[in-house]
Simulated assay, not measured.
Amino acid sequence: MKEIELKVLDMSSVLKPSDSFALVLEEVGGRERKLALIIGAMEAQGIRMAKMHYKPPRPFTHELMLSIMQAGRIWLEKGVIYEVKDGIYYTYLYVRRFDGELEIVDARTSDAIVLSLRAGFPLYVYEDLLEREQLRNISSNGLKYTVTINSVDMEMLKKAMEEAVASEDYERASLLRDEIRRREQEEKGEH
């Protein structure tokens, strides 16, 4: 599968009504497609500190991990976002061992982003995933856009459904209700 390089473009302030943030990644060169990940406050803080090249007085987890890898002569070659399901993005880290062997390790996408910013290795996404999940209907100022339903977690779906009912947008509410039911049935093992 073709890999498209990404860079961190922006991070929103707090999304209402939750304490989540929208992290926007942008395609490097090319068509400049954008991908939004919904992340928590702790993940947002780690990414902000890495973007600012902030060095904490004592090593945080990402700095500790990179120091251990350096001491063990292991380095990160790249990260690849390979899937999104029910609001969760999945990423592999490609790790080169001191003996030259390449290992592929599953990682939280937010951790892969922080490590990429700290260690300087590239972050990619499979092109078909980017094409399917890219932001749509981006306003001229870039502050408003549409994300796919697949990139939103259950909590946000439920809140969006409540808002749709409150604003009497019943068509949208029914679509959201159906997606919530589908995920709940899938979680229970029903198909």
Rank of each mutant, 00 (worst) to 15 (best):
E187T: 11
T61C: 04
K159I: 06
E163G: 08
K16P: 08
R172T: 14
E131C: 04
L64V: 06
A50F: 09
E133T: 06
M42W: 14
S174V: 10
D128K: 13
M161P: 00
A107Y: 08
A71D: 12
I74N: 01
T109L: 04
L129K: 14
V24C: 00
E3S: 10
A166Q: 13
A71E: 14
K85Y: 07
V114Q: 06
S151E: 05
E101H: 14
D178C: 00
R177A: 07
G87C: 10
I81V: 14
L117K: 05
Q45C: 09
L157F: 04
T148P: 02
E162R: 10
I38W: 09
V125H: 06
A41P: 06
I81K: 00
A44N: 12
D19W: 06
H53P: 04
D153F: 01
M11R: 09
G72D: 08
I180Q: 00
Q70G: 05
A44S: 13
A112E: 04
I149C: 03
L9C: 11
G142T: 03
K34Y: 09
R181C: 02
Y145G: 01
L35Y: 01
N137M: 06
L176H: 00
R177H: 05
L25C: 03
S167M: 10
R172K: 15
A119C: 03
L135I: 02
Y126K: 14
F98S: 15
L76M: 15
I81E: 07
L64K: 04
D10P: 06
R132Q: 09
V84D: 08
S116N: 01
D169G: 08
L157Q: 00
Q134H: 12
E3T: 12
H191G: 11
E32Y: 11
Y126V: 12
L76A: 01
I138T: 05
E187H: 12
Y145C: 01
G189T: 11
T109M: 13
A22I: 03
R172Q: 13
